[in-house]
């Protein structure tokens, strides 16, 4: 890519971060992170607890002191925070609304608080849920609170939505309605969403890009389309495990296409003699996450 092209892309990007670092005392919670988020993307922010996800999100909306270059919607998050929040939303927890309030009170409140909030749109979105306008928050289930909260947020005409663990503690039905709302309301080709979650398998198909953090460092920043091309997963028989291991895969685990099969994941295409020993399969995001962050607390069984 030539320089003017690169400049044009970073100028139109909703988020542009270069060498971003956030320190808490001596610890670098976010360590020299560079990435851009263009418009129309759904970006998954993955990392174990303490990897720096929340700190990075806070930096994007000016709630953490960051070093390095950072532009969000063309603005400096710390300096232009008020202006930024006209068109960016940060939701640290979608399951919290004041318990005493009625849903229509919240709509009135939001109309007064946020200039780009549309009460009509919020009501329209709420009609699709089981939440009533006259319901008090305290009578709603957790899933319904999330739906109400998301309807309120989606009714803000924002170009960037930053959601920290929106599906935490939700049952499967509530998560599904959340994903539907995400696709229906936010994927219009203009808005972008940055979303952190541990529900990697469920959210993989909704994402266009992934950012992976490990101990503050960005270990992967890639579109899902490029991920399919760059990483090669081979399902193979246990009997050729040694040959596979010799080709230095990123990760190996039990399971795959057959009964006694294994899977090896490679960064880049392994040599033909190795390729021919297995059957190419789709590398899943969970596998890559495990491989690149090396903490075997996910549900795959490892060697």
């Amino acid at each position: 890519m030539n320089a003017p092209q690169e400049q044009a892309i970073s100028a139109s990007a909703l988020v542009h971060a270069k060498g971003l670092t956030v320190r808490y005392g001596a610890k670098r919670a976010v360590d020299d992170v560079s990435f851009t988020i263009p418009k129309g993307r759904v970006v998954g922010l993955l990392g174990h607890n303490g990897a720096g996800k929340t700190t990075l999100m806070k930096a994007l909306v000016g709630l953490a002191n960051a070093e390095g270059e950072l532009r969000v919607l063309g603005k400096h998050p710390k300096r232009d925070r008020v202006a930024l929040l006209q068109s960016a939303c940060y939701i640290p927890d979608v399951a919290i609304l004041p318990r005493w309030a009625r849903v229509d009170d919240l709509i009135t409140l939001m109309s007064g608080l946020h200039p780009s909030f549309s009460a009509e749109r919020a009501k329209g979105l709420l009609k699709r849920t089981s939440v009533g306008l006259r319901d008090r928050v305290k009578v709603l289930s957790k899933g319904m609170v999330v739906q109400a909260h998301l309807a309120l947020v989606a009714a803000i005409d924002a170009r960037l939505m930053i959601l920290d663990e929106p599906t935490l503690g939700l049952d499967v039905l509530s998560r599904k309605s959340f994903y539907e709302m995400l696709i229906d309301e936010w994927c219009d080709g203009e808005r972008s969403v940055l979303i952190s979650t541990h529900q990697v398998e469920e959210i993989e198909t909704l994402l266009s890009d992934v950012l992976m953090l490990n101990e503050g460092k960005l270990v992967l920043s890639i579109s899902l389309e490029d991920m399919d091309r760059r990483f090669v997963a081979l399902s193979h028989d246990a009997s050729v495990a040694d040959e596979m291991a010799a080709a230095h895969p990123l990760l190996r685990y039990r399971g795959g296409a057959g009964r006694d099969s294994r899977t090896s994941v490679f960064d880049g295409t392994p040599p033909d003699n190795v390729l021919s020993l297995g059957q190419r399969v789709r590398p899943s995001l969970v596998d890559l996450f495990v491989a690149l962050t090396r903490k075997p607390e996910l549900d795959r069984q490892h060697f």
């Binding site: 759904v42 696709i183 229906d184 909704l206 994402l207 266009s208």
Partner: peptide, 12 residues
Amino acid sequence: RALAGQYLLNPL
């Protein structure tokens, strides 16, 4: 968009 919503897939 309709297909994306139906199958819960990213529009891309």
